[in-house]
Write a protein that binds this DNA or RNA. Sequence first.
DNA 1: CGAATTCTTGACTTCAGGGTACAGAACCTT
DNA 2: AAGGTTCTGTACCCTGAAGTCAAGAATTCG
Lengths: 189, 189
Amino acid sequence: MARPMTFDAEETIERAVEVFWQRGFGATTPQNLVDELGIGKGSLYNTFRSKHHLFQLAMRRYCAHRAAELAEALDGPGAERPKLRTAMRNLAGVGEHQLGCLIVNSVAELGSSDEAVADVSKEMFDLVQDAFRASIERGQARGELIPGRDPVDAASALLAVVIGTNVLAKAGRPASQLTRLLDAALIDI
Amino acid sequence: MARPMTFDAEETIERAVEVFWQRGFGATTPQNLVDELGIGKGSLYNTFRSKHHLFQLAMRRYCAHRAAELAEALDGPGAERPKLRTAMRNLAGVGEHQLGCLIVNSVAELGSSDEAVADVSKEMFDLVQDAFRASIERGQARGELIPGRDPVDAASALLAVVIGTNVLAKAGRPASQLTRLLDAALIDI
DNA sequence: CGAATTCTTGACTTCAGGGTACAGAACCTT
DNA sequence: AAGGTTCTGTACCCTGAAGTCAAGAATTCG
């Protein structure tokens, strides 16, 4: 029929995640993408239409990863508090490169002026908050967690903590302080 | 001796705060600054040396404002919890234009790759955390707040909540949810 | 094999960002 | 009033960002 693509689009998107994550949307140039994705400019624009469109794909891919990680951490058996702790550490990217969270960074950079960012971030934040809420409700029902707290309120507070921790990570706070912080936030859940 | 400046540099910096706050550093163009500061390009570069230098001045000015606000909220007499609530609402910019916090945005956009941002943000975050810590210690000493919590840990958690709330504000969450969130975070302090 | 189709390469174009230069204006001193 | 000095306005410059395009390469179908 025709010449097949010589690269895997999915894999390329995954690499694009890294690129945008490291540099942010505005600071990433087409040349950066060409260099780090290993494809030509023509292929880039031919396949992904525009820098911004690739950015959207990268954000969604990133969210899918994070959501899967979150589900893995919270869905299994076991006490809720340790699972929450793990989930929060993952989301806060404590151990990783100190790049914060791609979504948080994008919101802070582009805010609600970028519709794609607004949509994806709303989705992601709601998803995380809801997963936290479900976990807290389970923990309360089993008598593990402090009863009487509104699970929605507690979950939104934890979401804010995770987001804040990401920013603090990007600001250069040492991981040791961040894990303490997360533990402190979990004390009264 | 020589021709005097026809504009007030301090006032111009204050305007620059607004400009950078609205658009972020990268997305602000010299033309934006010329238009919104109401001075010519020559004066701009003559007085402020570079876009980045003006940005630094704007960040510091912004921090000074915020720090004064914070001190005003926490230093007076009265119970600590309500004062903390006020302070956090101020810092989270709940009522204002949904622009988040200039420092948080800058960290997320430029991260630690920009030394000025790294310095200012570290300073500011430490300052806020320390003010929170002092307030919590006072509250504990007076028996107002829950005893036994490490004030440093609690303060860092509150800092993270405030930062996260800023991001959520910029992501478009309604103010009503954000005030609830802040109240929820204060429950167990 | 040739044709049709789709991918790749990379030179090229356009335009804006960030800054400089310089001519002229406004002020102070004498 | 003249001169020295500093500010202002604006035209200009250079680089790089973002994207386009045409020519050629790889593939399948007939």
